[in-house]
């Protein structure tokens, strides 16, 4: 019996061999990076955390056992006397200071947090990448005029970078007024110079590479050189940064909410808002702060892990 299975194995292996030699399809660097990611523990843990977070954010509001704003147990909590209700069968995470179900609020809050993180990261990424591409393309292929343009753009982003990011976000939020959109814009704008500088720097490195010179020598138009040669090779650090900045965006959005610049409607749960509300009762009921805090920490950790794993996978030095 064992001999038989061995034989079958051998035949299978032979079959695989012929198959691979007949259809030689090249593996692009993206595909190889993905293959390396799949065998990285860090990437798998990070991806699992993010998947769980996204799942909670999407289906959470339907799973919530109670209304997130319903003050069903108003009569049971007395925040002034330090009397709270902790974990119990009916309310898994206990009640907050207004007698609302913490677990339901936590589930619904995940969606807000994800929304703020993703939208503000996208604002930073899209605007920053556009500025970066313009600057990088001007610097590498624009000649003397292009270099001037690049210098002007870069000095401007330097000014933005020199301001402390939270201070900048606070000023933007203060100018635009208190709303959820404000938080997204404020956190997103802070990311713009980071993405711009990163992409431009990456493009400058690639712009000096031999294959760009070769593309010029072949006679490819400058616009096409930027799009097909320089840009695809400059994207990996930007993708990594986008993943990592999701983590910081969530933390910064929480910080803005904590400072009272977030969503003006305190009834809509968001982890940052929940955290700032819990602060007042931290002495009597620390668990009220723990749930949103742990949520933020774990999500940020998930994005950071995935980002770091991506950076390793995309590192050209590790190309085998």
């Amino acid at each position: 019996m064992t001999i038989l299975t061995n034989k079958a194995d051998k035949i299978d292996r032979l079959a695989e061999l012929t198959q691979s030699s007949e259809t030689v399809t090249g593996s692009s660097l993206w595909r190889e990076a993905f293959r390396r990611m799949r065998s990285s523990k860090m990437a798998i843990i990070g991806a699992a955390i993010i998947a769980a977070f996204v799942l909670v954010a999407i289906v959470g509001p339907w799973l919530a056992p109670h209304g997130p704003t319903a003050q069903n147990w108003r009569s049971e909590v007395f925040p002034n006397q330090g009397k709270f209700v902790g974990m119990r069968g009916e309310n898994w995470f206990g009640l907050d200071h207004l007698g609302r179900d913490m677990f339901s609020r936590w589930l619904v809050g995940a969606r807000q947090t994800l929304l703020v993180g993703v939208v503000s990261m996208l604002i930073g990424l899209i605007v920053g990448a556009l500025v970066g591409v313009l600057s990088g393309a001007a610097a590498t292929l624009g000649g003397k005029v292009g270099q001037r343009v690049d210098t002007v753009i870069m000095r401007f982003t330097d000014i933005m970078l020199s301001l402390p990011s939270l201070l900048l976000a606070v000023s933007i939020a203060a100018v635009l007024g208190q709303s959820l959109t404000t938080v997204m814009i404020a956190v997103g704008v802070v990311q713009i110079p980071i993405f711009a500088r990163l992409l431009r720097g990456s493009m400058l490195v690639q712009g000096g590479a031999d294959y760009v010179l070769a593309a010029k020598a072949v006679g490819i138009r400058r616009k096409r050189i930027v799009l097909t040669q320089i840009l695809p090779n400059s994207l990996s650090p930007v993708i990594v940064q986008a993943t990592l900045s999701l983590a910081t965006a969530i933390i910064e959005a929480a910080a803005l909410s904590y400072l009272g610049l977030g969503n003006p409607d305190p009834a809509v749960p968001e982890w940052g808002v929940m955290l700032s509300q819990a602060q007042r009762f931290f002495d009597n009921e620390p668990m009220m702060a723990a749930y949103p805090a742990v949520g933020i920490i774990i999500t940020a950790l998930g994005f950071t892990l995935l980002g770091e794993a991506m950076r390793e996978a995309l590192d050209p030095k590790l190309r085998g």
């Binding site: 031999d210 006679g219 097909t228």
Partner: peptide
């Protein structure tokens, strides 16, 4: 070019590398 690897775009396959110049002309 001198450096055979450095002068080929690592993200393009061979057909794409060769076809690009033809398309440009």
């Amino acid at each position: 070019f001198q450096d055979p690897l450095g002068s080929l775009n690592p993200r393009q396959n061979i057909e794409s590398i060769l076809a690009e110049g033809m398309a440009a002309h």
